[in-house]
Design a protein around this nucleic acid. Sequence first.
DNA 1: AAAAATTATTAGGCGAGCCAAATAATTATT
DNA 2: AATAATTATTTGGCTCGCCTAATAATTTTT
Lengths: 216, 216
Amino acid sequence: MHSFSEENYLKAIYHLGADGAKISLTAIAEALHNNPASVIDMLKKLTEKKLISYDKKKGAKLTHSGIKAAMEIIRKHRLWEVFLLEKLGYKWDEVHNIAEQLEHVGDYDLADRLEKFLGFPDYDPHGDPIPKADGKIAEVFKTMLLEVETGKQYKVVAVKDTSVEFLHYLQKLGIGIGTRIKVIEKIAFDGSLVVQIDKNLNTTISNKFAENVLVG
Amino acid sequence: MHSFSEENYLKAIYHLGADGAKISLTAIAEALHNNPASVIDMLKKLTEKKLISYDKKKGAKLTHSGIKAAMEIIRKHRLWEVFLLEKLGYKWDEVHNIAEQLEHVGDYDLADRLEKFLGFPDYDPHGDPIPKADGKIAEVFKTMLLEVETGKQYKVVAVKDTSVEFLHYLQKLGIGIGTRIKVIEKIAFDGSLVVQIDKNLNTTISNKFAENVLVG
DNA sequence: AAAAATTATTAGGCGAGCCAAATAATTATT
DNA sequence: AATAATTATTTGGCTCGCCTAATAATTTTT
């Protein structure tokens, strides 16, 4: 198996690559709150293990087996999140950190059994699809709330940020997976959005916030 | 929190001290499959953290807070074992190794929630009592099968060894927690025992085996 | 009591994963 | 094109938890 640390790098690289952008050394360093010097060492190691390819120009890229390894970790992470929320009664914003630890435990078998126990859930509590045992992951059609058409009703399908602060704020605004949301107006000055959440009164949300809410 | 490694030392020291014997450096080294040189370093560290006291003559001894820490780990370990067996359908002999990893994850809260989810079990699948949230652990009256009166019916309450080999053998003999067992005869030559398991025909078991089966 | 065996300890070293600081390479700005 | 800013890389060093080998202390055996 791969070390705890290697797994975190693979996961970070996977997530950073989600939007097709180049995955630079510094991007990884920031994502993991590590020093670039540490990152480059690890990238060398992962390259030797043929889990990634790395090139100054092209950035880091998961190989086939790197993707496979990343999917296994993400699968475990999301399954544990479902478990923590549904079975242990944790709140939305609490599950992520504990799942970060649990995701490194055990093998495929554990994930498979857990999945079965949970009734083969398709999505985790943040709306992200759970990779299946074969590594396949559902494509979810989602757009940043920021880029959405004004006046049209959307449904929140996922959130990007997983920080406690963000999730708390979501809760305060009454936003969860499945919440209906409509952009009433876009403020040109600072990119703020006036939105209607469910049938409530209008609220103004920041540009940054709207980047992290994904609707479909 | 304490490190993964520190937790393993605390747990080992706790278990080694169960029978009141002196916990020597070499005993710990053997239990953890570590070198005595490594052990002494860690004992120093744990002493500084006031989790143990250590003295060449008296051996290692958990302090009050060391006991508390050890109980938390054991509590988590045993709760996870129940979970793995009851909820995920693992077999008796498979749960220990996975629980060894899970026991280091999360905090008190996780243990408390898990305990509630499992319906506040009192014993783990190996018959060992699960420490409660306040650190209290039930005293179990148990004797090694080896030391038991001939001709009298006993019930298996726990097993000592947790190796896959041992647990497999138990299963093969049809012995589990709750199994009724009677010593028919003690062989003076090598300490073997002729026993009757439930209502089956008599079987002969070794001295070593009989040491690891606890009855009450 | 001396020799042998066991147990405890010290000394030095290793790999993993991290860091800060210096330098090199690249990209952006003027 | 020259300068500034950013990004990548190297160097040396640190802690943790482990190791082997040598030595010291203690206990057991003779």
